[in-house]
């Protein structure tokens, strides 16, 4: 008997809440169905209009013997193709996109309190984080691309008329070739002992296959020569950059009081990710020409 009272009071509260919720609600027919119908009509008209005025592209018949220069993937993969220019192909083509997708899917499991849902950027610092993430990531990406293109060296050369003094700092490939600690011997020269050994010459070819004896297990022998400069330039430096810079961004934003909650960090990182994706896509689409050199380009030049 006594327990019935609180239950009744509670159910009255529940009913009250349900009633208030009802008042906040509209009927799907007509309020939503109408909007859906109108936008379907509008977009049908827009699409027909677009299709009447702009024809889909069709180049010459496919010819495996003629490789166009440049050859490009569809636009939404040009960000990956752009990455390909700066790091090991396995990293750019497979590892990075796979990890990016897994990280994307994991967002709700990191940021799992339900604060701030159902409204556009409702927190006081949310917009700030969008702008900071977008600005830092897009500018940072462009700077990295310019660096790897040797833009600083080119600017130096055009200003002074002299060659850039530190050859191994022109871009990452130069670093891999000319860093003073690993002199420029090819493995063949090295074998023939026709060139001087540098202090780290051994680093260019570590015969891992001789250490990891898979042949003893009846498996094919590993033909694995680890080239430390290549591993450094194609893998370690890119991974450090791609993992380190976002972490650094979050740390600085945390110190500065820009991002404090999980949601704010998530907005910062997600905005940064979108900015990188968009920047790489635009560069890959419109600024990679012949030989994928940096410079303005459009596919329509082909027609």
């Amino acid at each position: 008997m006594t327990t019935a009272n609180p239950a009744e009071a509670q159910s009255a509260a529940v009913r009250g809440r349900a009633r208030r919720q009802r008042e906040e609600e509209l009927l799907v027919w007509p309020d939503l169905v109408f909007i859906e119908f109108i936008s379907a009509v509008v977009f049908t008209i827009l699409l027909v209009g677009l299709s009447v005025t702009v024809d889909a592209i069709l180049l010459d018949r496919a010819n495996p013997a003629v490789t166009p220069n440049p050859s490009k993937a569809p636009w939404y993969f040009l960000n990956l193709q752009e990455l390909l220019l700066h790091m090991h192909p396995a990293l750019a083509g497979v590892v990075v996109p796979t990890i990016a997708l897994i990280a994307l899917g994991a967002i709700p499991y990191w940021d799992n309190d339900n604060e701030g849902q159902g409204e556009w950027l409702s927190g006081p610092k949310d917009w700030l984080n969008v702008w900071v993430g977008t600005a830092v990531a897009s500018i940072g990406t462009l700077l990295l691309i310019f660096f790897d293109d040797g833009m600083h060296a080119k600017i130096y050369e055009s200003l002074t008329g002299a060659k850039f003094p530190v050859s191994w700092l022109v871009n990452m490939r130069e670093f891999q070739k000319n860093f003073p600690l690993w002199p420029t011997c090819t493995p063949e020269e090295l074998a023939a002992k026709t060139c001087a050994l540098g202090p780290l010459e051994w680093a260019k070819s570590i015969p891992l296959g001789k250490v990891v004896r898979t042949d003893l297990l009846g498996l094919p022998a590993l033909d694995l020569n680890i080239n430390i400069p290549a591993v450094l330039v194609e893998q370690i430096i890119p991974v450090t950059t791609m993992v380190g810079l976002p972490i650094l961004l979050s740390l600085v934003a945390h110190r500065r009081g820009i991002a404090q909650t999980k949601r704010e960090h998530m907005i910062l990182q997600f905005s940064g990710f979108i900015a990188v994706y968009v920047t790489l896509t635009i560069v890959g689409t419109y600024f990679r020409g012949e030989g994928l050199a940096l410079g303005p380009y459009t596919i329509f030049a082909h027609q």
Partner: peptide, 11 residues
């Protein structure tokens, strides 16, 4: 993402 609509229970 920006409307926070991925949060529980919509993970």
């Amino acid at each position: 993402f920006y409307t926070g609509a991925y949060k529980p229970p919509r993970e």
